[in-house]
Design a binder for these strands. Structure first.
Length: 273
DNA sequence: ATGGTAGGCAACCTA
């Protein structure tokens, strides 16, 4: 049986249970990684998630903002949470699934919500941008991630809202967005360095070549997001070198941006094995 | 060049 992993910045899990259910029915993921759940762990709608077919739930939430959660049809053998920049922010959770027939090795799924970085792309003037850059530096040297990326005896995936659109075709207008946080050269450089440190493969781009535009996010601050298609690819799926060749299909569920009470991000699903 | 919308949570903060 192949294994489908889905990532989605949901922008509050509690007010979007209906569209989470709709996405699950459409994509049938085995593992669903959410970001910006904006929900404390003791307030999480566990029963609704179990009813969607995910008996196994790993949470890293906090009150009011951030928060990540990973749901699975198969049990976890390990759960790990990272704390970056010493802020206690809920921006990461990793789960490990036991070996399964198609992939043959344990699989670790890292689910990240990278700081957005505010509006001003200058770390001297904007502490939120400084935090984003420091977060990326810290991740690049983070031993658990390097360990999982390079482990020959297990597979690894890194997914989430990385809040950076690295390629020229990951934004609607490269030149116009060069000084807009999410596409500045310094962020792109740090993301590329992080990717190289683990030899991660940007598997979404195995399915849509780098010459073609590919977006996962469209701003709320536009009356109609379909006009001029002014999107960005902020959400990513990276696979370890050993796993990447078994990536068999990708879906970016763009329709979800037009659903009732949408998130500004859409789900991305990758099938392995 | 600016401001536009959305969510949490009860002031404005964040995206």
């Amino acid at each position: 049986m192949p294994l489908t992993i889905c990532t989605w910045n949901i922008n509050s899990v509690r007010i979007r249970l209906d569209i989470v259910r709709a996405a699950v029915e459409q994509l049938r993921p085995d593992v669903l990684c959410l970001q910006e759940t904006k929900c404390q762990d003791d307030k999480f709608p566990l029963n609704a998630i179990r009813d969607m077919g995910f008996p196994h739930i790993a949470l890293n939430g906090q009150k009011g903002w951030h928060g990540v959660a990973t749901f699975s049809r198969r049990p976890f053998v390990k759960v790990e949470k990272g704390d970056f920049c010493g802020k206690g922010d809920a921006r990461h959770i990793a789960v490990t699934l036991a070996p399964e027939a198609a992939l043959g090795k344990p699989l670790t799924v890292h689910n990240f919500y990278v700081p957005a970085g505010g509006d001003i792309p200058d770390p001297e003037l904007n502490p939120k941008f400084a935090h984003k850059l420091a977060f990326l530096d810290e991740l690049t040297a983070w031993a658990p991630l390097l360990r999982d990326a390079g482990d020959a005896d297990s597979h690894a995936v890194l997914v989430g809202d990385l809040n950076i659109a690295p390629l020229e075709t990951d934004v609607w207008n490269h030149k116009q967005l060069l000084s807009v946080v999410s596409h500045t050269p310094i962020e792109v450089d740090k993301l590329t360095t992080l990717q190289a440190a683990g030899a991660w493969v940007d598997v979404m781009r195995n399915f849509v070549p780098p010459q073609e535009k590919l977006f996962t996010w469209w701003s709320y601050r536009s009356p109609d997001h379909t006009v001029n298609d002014r999107g960005r690819r902020l959400d990513h799926v990276w696979a370890s070198r050993t796993l990447a060749p078994s990536a068999g299909a990708m879906t970016v569920l763009k329709d979800a941006r037009s659903w009732e009470k949408p998130s500004d991000h859409v789900p991305v699903a990758l099938t392995f094995g």
